[in-house]
Design a protein around this nucleic acid. Sequence first.
DNA 1: GCGCATAGGTACTGAAAGTTAAGTACGCAC
DNA 2: GTGCGTACTTAACTTTCAGTACCTATGCGC
Lengths: 129, 129
Amino acid sequence: MDMPDWVASVDPCDADCPSRDLLDLIGDRWSLLIMLVIGQGFHRNGEIRRRVGGISQKMLTQTLRALEANGLVARHDFATVPPHVEYRLTPLGVSLGHAVGPMFQWIEASYPAVLRARAAYAARQAQAA
Amino acid sequence: MDMPDWVASVDPCDADCPSRDLLDLIGDRWSLLIMLVIGQGFHRNGEIRRRVGGISQKMLTQTLRALEANGLVARHDFATVPPHVEYRLTPLGVSLGHAVGPMFQWIEASYPAVLRARAAYAARQAQAA
DNA sequence: GCGCATAGGTACTGAAAGTTAAGTACGCAC
DNA sequence: GTGCGTACTTAACTTTCAGTACCTATGCGC
């Protein structure tokens, strides 16, 4: 079994283990996507909403609040009228960006393999039925 | 802005982009936890359920099916009575394990920083109110 | 032959998440 | 002075998630 070190270092059985808590945060449907777009240089609410296809205004605001509350994104409100607010990654947010890089690379590299696995699974199901 | 390369290589705006699809799969609440436990050497339904605290039988079955359908976990049914089924990581599953390793390391390393950020945010909220 | 164990499947139900649509408050161009 | 744009907030509605409870089939101990 060729598994990396983290199999020993994280214990999901432990309710106090940070894995549950933070996995819920960054395993969220939109969080990483929003951080990605901010990292690409889009800092304003409207810009982000237009870049992240399919997100509603409510989810964007809600997710940005959660990211801000956890120190991953900094919110700068210029307190002008009309409103002008900018979001930027904090150093902590940037470090998370680096940590999930390999995962995104895996997604890109492995997508074809996953599609093949799905097709094979569907074929097995059809055959069994 | 010190962001890694993947900010340019993945485009969440594109509905065809694999990021959405696979992020939903592995960003699931239980998938990574279950793969972790299987990687630790627990291969049977009951073993996994006892290791992953808080999961119900239904969610375990459901998640294992999804992982199997996507080629991350292999299911071996020995077709005996009483039933004996074993789950193991496929090579694809092991490669995903490696890819999320840095993320788990980040979680362990950054948890204190996140807790501090939360406390600071709560203090700001209390002050504003 | 009763109940327990295994590894699930299925249906019902409540909770949570997310969507749409509308409202807030102001300035600016037309 | 009508409508647009910004960055939200709120309410009502819908969809999805997840847990409980009960069901399959079989051999074992008693």
